[in-house]
């Protein structure tokens, strides 16, 4: 039995946001829905200022509060410890959003991709409507629809249900890396099996002091952060009184 995990190397991460865009494309995310996001912090005042960037996503917690709280098992633990979601069972109560300590579950407040559903021409008598564009290229709602994401999950989640990162379960099943990992230009995201001592994630977690978000809650997140980045320099001093 695998236990999938992700290591995020903060020294390699440039904060380009490529993972966020890649995730949106791979999983056909609607406007306002984010599975992969980031926490940015700016601390201090110039010249003593520090900027920090932490990419975020579902932590696929071993003790997932969203799973234990979901009244209908719409959220459940799947193969490899992935926290998965079944939109067909989701009643849209949003209790998982309340219970998630990480703010990484989104709700479809309206029909997804409303802009692409419009039937009015973008420029009257000059262009087609967004909906026609999507139809002509054979997409489903959106012209850039990725049908692979529909393998084992809804390709586009309907209005009234939650959705979240599933570590690209459709890719992992086919022995491919999650798309954010694949797309990261700096190789800052490393994915693998934590139960395999020879996997890169196991080695990195042992080699570097790592931290996980809100560890004190005991949720056992499966996203580890290593090598926290700080470009500041300081000279040797003992301070003063």
């Amino acid at each position: 039995m695998s236990k999938y995990a992700m290591v995020i190397d903060l020294k390699r991460c440039t904060g380009c946001g490529g993972c966020i865009v890649a995730c949106k494309n791979e999983n056909n995310l609607s406007d306002g829905i984010v599975w992969s996001s980031k926490i940015t912090e700016t601390v201090g005042t110039f010249p003593d200022v520090r900027f920090a960037y932490y990419p975020t996503l579902c932590n696929h917690c071993e003790n997932a509060p969203c799973v234990s709280g979901c009244p209908t098992r719409a959220l459940y633990k799947g193969e490899g410890g992935l926290t998965l979601h079944d939109p067909g069972k989701c009643i849209g109560c949003r209790y998982c959003m309340g219970r998630c300590p990480y703010g990484v579950i989104s709700f479809n407040w309206e029909n997804p991709h409303p802009a692409w559903r419009a039937r009015t021409e973008t420029i009257a008598q000059g262009t087609t409507s967004p909906a026609q564009v999507a139809e002509q290229v054979g997409g489903e709602v959106i012209p850039y629809y990725n049908p692979e994401s529909a393998e084992g999950y809804a390709g586009i989640r309907p209005r009234g249900v939650v959705e979240k990162c599933h570590f690209c379960a459709h890719r992992v099943e086919n022995e491919q890396l999650p798309y954010c990992v694949e797309a990261c230009p700096a190789d800052a995201r490393i994915f693998g099996d934590l139960d395999d001592p020879n996997s890169e994630v196991s080695k990195l977690v042992k080699k570097f002091k790592s931290f996980r978000l809100r560890e004190e809650l005991g949720t056992e997140p499966k996203v580890f952060y290593i090598r926290e980045f700080n470009q500041g320099k300081n000279s040797s001093t003992k301070g003063e009184v």
Binding site: S68, G69, C70, P71, T72, R73, A74, G88, K89, C90, I91, G92, C93, R94, Y95, F107, N108, P158, R159, G160, V161, V162
Partner: peptide, 23 residues
């Protein structure tokens, strides 16, 4: 009127989660 998909309420019976206080 607070649920996003109230017609999925049948899942309460076919897919119960006794660990959930909401259930």
């Amino acid at each position: 009127l607070e649920l996003g998909t109230p017609w999925h309420i049948v899942a309460y019976f076919i897919s119960p989660n006794p660990r959930s206080s909401l259930w």
